[in-house]
Amino acid sequence: MTIPLSSPDITEAEIEAVTAVLRTSRLSLGPQMEAFEDAIAEYIDTPHAIAVSSGTAGLHLCIKALGIGEGDEVIVPSFTFIAAANALRYERALPVFVDIDADSLNMSPASIEQAITPKTRAILVVHTFGRPAEMAAIMDIANRHHLFVIEDACEAIGATYQGRKAGSFGDAAVFAFYPNKQITTGEGGMVVTRRPELAAQIRALRNQGRYDSADWLQHAELGYNYRLSEINCALGFAQLKRIEPILQQREKVARRYQQALADINELVLPSTEIPGIRISWFVYVVRLNSDYTEIDRDSIVTTLTGAGIGCARYFAPIHLQPSYAAWRNSAVLPVTEAQASRTIALPFFNRITEEDIAQVGNALRTALLQIQNR
C-alpha cells in the first residue's frame, strides 16, 4: 500500500526499552510488567491492572472470573470486532445482540433495556472507535437489573466520559495494544478493575491458575497461558509515557480529515465535538450518505485499495458472520445493518501527512465520480 490503513508509532525510546529487557535474565513476569500495570492503573484511575496476552484474552478472563457460563445471556453489540462475542462463547454463554445508535455507533441504551431477560447476567459495552458509550444510562440499567458491566475499551484508551476515563465505570474493563491501536505492545492487552477479588482471580487465571501466594507448581484452578512478556510490557510502558501527545496528534489528524473531506456531499463524517466526551481516535470512519443510494460501498473500497490506499469495512456485523449463522434470524438489528453497509475506515495513524490525507480525499472523489458516471 502507498498509504497503509494503520502504522505503529515507534521511537528510539521504545527500541531502547525493549533492547534493555533483552540484556536481562527476566523475560516474563518481571519488573516491566509490574511498571506497566501500575502505570495503566494510575492512568485509568483504577486500583488494579493485569497485563494479558491480548484484548481477547482479557475479555475471556473477565467473563470467566465473573462466573458467567453456559446458558447465561450477555448483551453485546453486533457492530464491533468479533472477539467480543467469541469470548462469551468460549464459556458457552450466549451473546444477545442489540442495535446501535445511528450517530455514535455505540449500543443503544433503549435496545439494551428491551433485551433483558431472566437469563441476562451482564452487559458487554464497547466504546466503538474510541468514542465512549452512554455510560450513565447503561450503568443505570445495569444497577436496576443487577447486571455485571464489562467495558470493552480496546479501542478507547484515554477516552473520557463526563470527566472519567473509559474503562473506569464497570466491574472490569479491557484495553488492547495491537499495532493498529493508539499505543502498542505488538500483541497484548490489559484488564482493569476496582474489585480486589476479581483482580486476584484474573491474575491467577492468566498464569495457569496459579495465585501469587502459591508455589510455582501449585494450581488452584483451571487457568490459561495469557501472560504478557517483559518485552511487550517494556514497549507498552514506553508508549504510555507519551500517550497524551499521541492522543493529541491523532485528534489533529481527525480534524485534518474533517477539513479535507468537508466538501464531499456523498460522505457523512464522524462527529468531533461531543459535549462531555473526549474521543480517543482509534480509526477515522466515514459513511456513505444514505441519499446516494446508487453508490456501492464495496466498489469504493475496491477502487481505493487498487490505488494503493489502505481502507476497510469497519465493522462487518457479527450476527451476519458465517460463524454466527445460528444468530442470524434471531437478531433484528436494522440500524446496525444499515450503518455497517455504508462504513469505510480510511488510513489513520499518528504520522500520516497532510499530503497523504489530500491524496486519500482526491482518491475518494475520483472513485465516487467514476461510480456515479457508470
Rank of each mutant, 00 (worst) to 15 (best):
A13V: 14
E16Q: 13
A17K: 01
P31A: 12
E34K: 13
I40C: 11
A41D: 08
I44S: 05
P47Q: 01
S54A: 10
G55M: 09
G58K: 03
L59H: 08
H60P: 01
I63P: 04
I63E: 04
K64I: 06
A65K: 02
P77V: 10
Y90K: 08
I100F: 06
D101L: 13
L105D: 04
S111K: 10
A115D: 01
I123Q: 00
R131C: 07
I138R: 06
I141F: 08
R144A: 14
L147I: 05
V149G: 06
D152M: 14
Q162A: 15
G163M: 08
A176M: 14
Y178F: 12
Y178H: 09
T193Q: 03
T193I: 11
I202D: 02
A204M: 04
N207W: 08
A220W: 08
Y224A: 08
Y224L: 15
N225Y: 03
R227D: 07
R227T: 09
R227Y: 04
A238K: 02
E244I: 15
P245G: 09
Q249M: 10
Q249G: 15
E251G: 11
E251H: 11
Y257H: 06
Q259G: 13
D263T: 14
N265V: 13
L269F: 12
I274P: 09
I279L: 04
V283G: 00
R297T: 00
D298W: 05
T302K: 01
L304Y: 00
R313H: 14
F315M: 09
A316L: 14
P317D: 11
H319M: 10
L320D: 10
Y324W: 14
Y324Q: 11
W327E: 15
V335D: 02
Q339V: 15
S341C: 11
L346K: 02
L346W: 02
F348Q: 01
F348H: 02
F349A: 04
I352M: 07
I352V: 13
T353A: 04
E355L: 14
I357A: 03
Q359P: 01
L369G: 07
Q370W: 04
Q372G: 06
